[in-house]
Amino acid sequence: MWQKTKPYLLLLPAIGTIVLLFFGGLFDGLLKSLGYFPAIGETRFEVTAYTDLFRSSEFWESLVLTGRVAALSSVIAAVLGAVIAVSLFMLNESAKSGGAQLWHRLFQLPLTIPHLVGGYIVVLLFMQSGFLSKILASAGLIDEIRDFPVLVNDPFGWGIILTYAWKEAPFVSLMIYPVLSRIHRSWRDVARIFGAGSWNFIREIVLPVMVPAWTIATFIVFVFTFSAFEVPFLLGVTYPSMLPVFSYQLYTSGTLADRPEALAVNIILAALTILLGLVVYYFSKRWNVLKGWD
């Protein structure tokens, strides 16, 4: 009996902490979003916060902006990450020296830099008075730095998209590369013998092999950017703001009456994330992408 229960008991502190902080926080947020707020004397359950949110144009604009930024960041990061991973893989296949290893390390560098620092780098590089605009102005490609497009603190969210694309592309490549390294070295020879050039080899062998890991990595990036706070807070505009920032603005608006709405935004974010997870899971099963691998 003791032998059977011992592993569970040993896991209890870790599981307890996770349940308390994660599910506890989520549950508390759900209760408060439903108006249950004993601290201000509200003990009834109602969906007013949700109906108010769905009626406000501010919420919908935030949602569209959040979806657009998250989608563009994920797609750009996914494409860049895949290009990096495939390039490193092909370099490793053909190179005889340790050059591929050096490139591998170089591409991993952004992983070591915090998001906030990444955001600052984008500010310093891409704002109108930033490094890039000054170089372009000095080179005579633009007349003055004001001609440089507004890429930071812009309503479209380009600054945020650039930051996440730069920061998450190495993450995507890091997720894909170990899968690519499972590709047998001789498969390249087999493919060539049967008439496949480099592009056909990538299309027929490399891409199908990396699709499962690629999908999952892109989904993780999407979910992360969808609910991330610090970079949109730093590089976004006041209106419209991304959903996490919108939630923060509501929460710190100075009135406790806005807090159910702030927490309702978070619950909606969590619900959308779960829904997206289910969609990705459904498609990955349907594509049969993992079939054939032992």
Binding site: D189, A191, I193, F194, G195, I205, V209, K291
Partner: peptide, 22 residues
């Protein structure tokens, strides 16, 4: 001529089938 254009075929020591294909 590149191997892909020689119209040769090869069987290796291991079957080297592509596992993601039927």
């Amino acid at each position: 001529v590149a191997p892909e254009d020689r119209r040769f075929a090869m069987v290796f020591q291991q079957s080297l089938l592509f596992p993601h294909m039927t």
